[in-house]
Amino acid sequence: MPVNYYIFLSIALFCIGIVGVLTRRNAIIIFMCIELMFNAVNLLLVAFSKMHHKAAIDAGSVATNVGSDGQIFVFFIMVVAAAEVSVGLAIIVMMYRNVHSVDVNFLNRLKH
């Protein structure tokens, strides 16, 4: 599979995430779109990792580990995302308790 396909797929997902962040007003959905962006990155990293692996094999090294760092990075992204979600949702819930809304357009108390 040519790597370009994966790049375009990831970029498309990434951009859909960005559009979501820009257009939606519900904090939770914005957050979800951010997760979508993370996932697009993950997919891209895995694709690259496999690409580099293949390149290394084609270059002649047999039992190579080239490319595994990309997947490890993905693992770390997932780890971080999990932590971030726990905190983020706690914040959103805290906000909701006080305001009874998660609409980011209500976030204007600081604009004066």
């Binding site: 599979m1 040519p2 790597v3 370009n4 994966y6 790049i7 375009f8 970029i11 498309a12 990434f14 951009c15 859909i16 960005i18 559009v19 820009l22 257009t23 694709a47 990792s49 496999k50 690409m51 692996h53 293949k54 390149a55 094999i57 580990n65 080239v66 490319g67 595994s68 997947q71």
Partner: peptide, 29 residues
């Protein structure tokens, strides 16, 4: 967002690794 997509795609279309291939179905890593 659409513009960003266009720009990125246009930029990366001619990327240096365009010819490279991703290994599917196999590979131990």
């Amino acid at each position: 967002g659409g513009c960003l997509l266009l720009v990125l795609v246009a930029a990366l279309r001619n990327s240096e690794i365009r010819q490279q291939v991703v290994q599917v179905k196999e590979g131990e890593i």
